[in-house]
Amino acid sequence: MVLQIEHLTGGYSKTPVIHDVSLNINKGEIVGLIGLNGAGKSTTIKHILGLLRPHSGEIRVDGITIGENAEDYRRHLAYIPETPVLYEELTLKEHIQMTAMAYGIGEETALERAGDLLKIFRLDTKINMFPTHFSKGMKQKVMLVCAFLARPDLYIIDEPFLGLDPLGIDSLIDLMVEERNGGRSILMSTHILATAEKYCDRFAIIDNGKMVAEGSLDALRDEFNMHGASLDEVYLKITGGGIDNA
C-alpha cells in the first residue's frame, strides 16, 4: 500500500474541513480525487503533504507517518500544485538541479531524465531561462518535469490539466500511464471528469468534507444503480448536482 489515510479529520483551524476521511492507494494505481469547489480535496492533499496537522486520524506513505520520519515520508512523494510555484531567481536548469539535490539524484542522471521530459513538453530550448517569465501552461510543464524526474512512489497532482495545451495534456496522460505501468501511483484531483474516467483506476468522491463514495467506475455504477452511466452522471447524482452545496 503506497498511501493509507485512516479516519482523517482536519482543516486549517480548529474547525474541521474534512471529516473521517479514509482512502488507500495501491502500487501502480491512478486514483482520481473528485469533488466540488470547497469539498475538501485541497485540504486532503495538504494533509497528505504534511502542510496541515490532522485533528485526528493517520496518514501513512509507504508505511511510515510524517511524525516517524519526515524526510523519508516526503522522499516517496512528489507534488504538483494547481498553481505553479517556482523560484523567481532560478533558471529552468537550476530548478532541475535543486529537485535532484532534494531527492538525492546525481546531477547527470537528473539532467538525462530531465532531457527526455523537456523534449516531451517542448521546453528543451529554454533550459537557461527563468521559468517565471513563461506562460502559465509552460510553468505547469516545469512543475511536471521537476516532479517526474524525481520518480517517487506517489505523485500528488492537483488539477493536472489546468492551463495545459492539448499536446501537453496528451503528453501528461502518456507519462502518467507510463509511471503507473512502472509501479508508481498517482493521486490526482480534477474536475475534468471525462479524461479522469478514461485513465483513473479508481475514484474517491469527496463532498462537504466527507468521503461519500470510493471505487472503480463499475463499482460506483453498481453501488448507485446507474448502469452505463458516465462518471459525470454518477458524480452529479452522488453530490446532488451541487444543489446542497451552493
Partner: peptide, 11 residues
C-alpha cells in the same frame, strides 16, 4: 517560508 522547503524531503 516558501512551499518547496516544506514539501521536499530535506530537513
Amino acid at each position: 517560508y516558501l512551499l518547496w522547503p516544506k514539501v521536499w524531503p530535506v530537513d
